[in-house]
Design a protein around this nucleic acid. Structure first.
Length: 274
DNA sequence: CTGTTTACCTGGGGGC
DNA sequence: TGCCCCCAGGTAAACA
């Protein structure tokens, strides 16, 4: 699923090619992907893309049309894909939106098997409220370490729940929550306020390093994720925990188990994650 | 306020 | 081959 490294890879790939471009036309095959439906989606036609940014798993496109500014917010959720193909490429039944450009031979397609992803168009002055309403925390790569440690330390929830909570730290999903806890040798079931400062500091550093490593590998492709060129990532080759149940732990050789923690399938080593 | 449950969707895999 | 059921998990809304 697209988490911080995957969304960052998509953001960077699109930014280098479409900032400055003008959208000529949008094809809408499944209007409910866009909040407000077709009428709202038409706002994008003839608009210019002025910038692309990211916070956690949210993509933000700064849009300008007739001297008015908008923000397009895209969340890929579980199976969303956002990538370019030559404009005459045919699309399948899972492709819900297509963006054509004035001066680009490629089009952008939005493909999403489960249709969980959302596009939302708001005004720039509404962006702060959008983030505030959802209480989206600082991006994991920009967050202050002591703030992270303080938030975990005062919580009675387990660490897996906290890492998945986008109001605590933004960007981790099920894959990177398991991967970072494995690398930090911390059990997903440990309660936040039972973990000492040193271990939390270490976890924070490992979170940032793991996410950066995954960005260098252009993300993890397990089933659906692709980058902005429609190609798979390579970090799945370096996973140590996610979907590794039954395999040997790379640190101690014990068998990795899978059980439900925080309502999610959770993979960890019972021996070295205490 | 907090915590839990359900809805949103489809494809894949297991059981028979 | 096919049918049924469960599972995958990010977010938001409904609920207790």
């Amino acid at each position: 699923m697209p988490e911080l490294p995957e969304v960052e890879t998509v953001a960077a790939g699109l930014r280098s090619r479409i900032v400055g471009q003008q959208i000529d036309r949008i094809l809408i095959h499944w209007p409910s992907i866009v909040v407000g439906g077709e009428e709202k989606a038409r706002l994008l036609e003839k608009s210019f893309i002025r910038g692309i940014s990211r916070r956690g798993k949210y993509l933000f496109w700064d849009i300008e049309k007739n001297d008015k500014n908008f923000v397009l917010i895209i969340h890929l959720r579980m199976t969303g894909q956002l990538y370019t193909v030559p404009r005459d490429t045919s699309v399948d039944k899972h492709t819900h939106l297509e963006l054509f450009f004035n001066n680009l031979e490629d089009k952008i397609v939005y493909r999403d098997i489960r249709k969980f992803g959302r596009w939302e168009i708001i005004l720039p002055e509404e962006k702060e409220a959008y983030i505030g309403k959802r209480k989206i925390a600082d991006d994991a790569l920009l967050m202050n370490q002591s703030l992270f440690v303080e938030r975990i330390k005062k919580s009675g929830k387990n660490i897996k729940t906290l890492l998945l909570d986008q109001t605590v730290i933004a960007g981790l999903g099920n894959i990177y929550a398991d991967e970072t806890l494995m690398r930090a040798h911390i059990s997903p079931k440990r309660i936040g306020n039972s973990i000492n400062d040193d271990d939390l500091g270490r976890l924070f550093v490992i979170i940032q390093k793991t996410l950066k490593d995954a960005i260098l590998k252009e993300g993890t492709t397990f089933s659906d994720y692709v980058n902005s060129y429609g190609r798979k990532g390579k970090f799945q080759l370096e996973l140590q925990a996610y979907k590794k149940d039954g395999d040997s732990c790379v640190y101690c050789g014990s068998e990795i188990v899978k059980e439900k923690v925080a309502g999610r399938g959770t993979h960890y080593c019972p021996n070295c994650q205490e």
